[in-house]
């Protein structure tokens, strides 16, 4: 209820991102709308190619150009439409009010610069802090992400760090300017399973400390269950279902979401239940089936599914889905 009274921190309306390919333009992201409240954790889940990473990049207007461009929509952050800002204003948002953490900690750090210089860079960019002072702040940041012996580590190079340590450094850099929102694009995909939980716990803890909102892009439904307040499920560039984590886990309504849930092992279910894979492959964005993009793989597909594109409809307090099939199935 409180969320509907005040306007959300981030409001995305009808965001559409096109990529130019050999076979013409494809919509990597198609009329995506979503909200993020201050301090909330929103998970965006989907298979590879479902448009979740492109959605994340387009929020900061970092879609690779000239092949990709945002063709429609609004990204209203803190009352300001980011898509109307000029380059300089946009740079003042990046890393300062919205920070991003990338998928591959092994390659997200510049191999030729010391850690200190890289962690201190956001201070120098956004606050004009002199290097000496920025390095001091960088040390404090490394302490906060619990990197031992942080003073000596400032002089070290990225190749002297392990993957988990590098991702901690990336988190430190993201937190530097106390952003209102952090976008983490599959932050733990490249890490060992044992390190994944540490990194996510740390990220969650620190974002709660600074009251930053967190958009967690992932394909790991286990991560979603543990860390997300709300979830958006994407398929072929569109949001097919969104709701609280509880809605998605206990009352999944869209056939795709249900199929995803049925395809992962769960500790709270009878071990005799078989895992059910989803038949077929995700469609190529260049050759989307007419109507609902999921209908060729959907076991409930009925008459309107192949002709019309379903819109998101409210089915619970914060629960929406885009499907024609009767919710009761």
């Amino acid at each position: 209820m409180a969320g509907s009274m005040t306007s959300p921190l981030l409001q995305v309306r009808g965001l559409t991102v096109q990529f130019r390919t050999d076979r013409g333009f494809v919509n990597a992201v198609d009329s995506v709308s979503l909200n993020v409240d201050a301090g909330e954790t929103l998970a965006v889940v989907g298979e590879s190619g479902s448009g979740k990473s492109v959605t994340a990049l387009s929020l900061l207007r970092l879609v690779p150009s000239p092949q990709g461009r945002i063709v429609a929509g609004e990204v209203i952050f803190d009352g300001q439409d980011l898509l109307t800002l000029d380059d300089r204003q946009m740079r003042a948002v990046r890393g300062n009010r919205i920070a991003m953490i990338f998928q591959e900690p092994m390659s997200s750090l510049n191999p030729t610069l010391t850690m200190g210089l890289q962690v201190a860079e956001p201070f120098s960019i956004h606050d004009g802090t002199p290097w000496a002072a920025a390095l001091g702040k960088a040390k404090t940041l490394l302490d906060r992400v619990r990197i031992p012996d942080s003073g000596a580590r400032l002089a070290a190079y990225p190749h002297q760090f392990s993957g988990g340590m590098r991702q901690r450094v990336m988190i430190a850099m993201a937190l530097a300017c106390r952003p209102r929102m952090i976008i983490a694009d599959e932050p733990t995909t490249a890490l060992d399973v044992t390190v994944q939980a540490q990194i996510l716990d740390l990220l969650k803890e620190l974002t709660q400390e600074t009251r930053s909102a967190l958009i967690l892009i992932t394909h790991d439904l286990g991560v979603v269950a543990r860390y997300a307040d709300r979830v958006c499920v994407m398929y072929a560039g569109r949001i097919v279902e969104t709701g609280t984590a509880r809605d998605i886990y206990e009352r999944a309504s869209h056939p795709y979401t249900r199929a995803l849930m049925a395809s992962i092992p769960r500790l709270d279910r009878d071990t005799a239940t078989r895992l059910e894979p989803i038949e077929g492959y995700p469609p190529s964005l260049a050759q989307l089936p007419p109507g609902c993009a999921f209908h060729p793989r959907c076991r409930f597909a009925a008459d309107p599914c192949g002709r019309r594109v379903p819109m998101l409809e409210k089915i619970g307090e914060r629960h929406h889905r885009a499907c024609f099939v009767d919710a009761a199935v």
């Binding site: 990046r94 991003m100 956001p122």
Partner: peptide, 9 residues
Amino acid sequence: HAAQSTGAS
């Protein structure tokens, strides 16, 4: 890309 996302010119 990471540097671009921190707002570097």
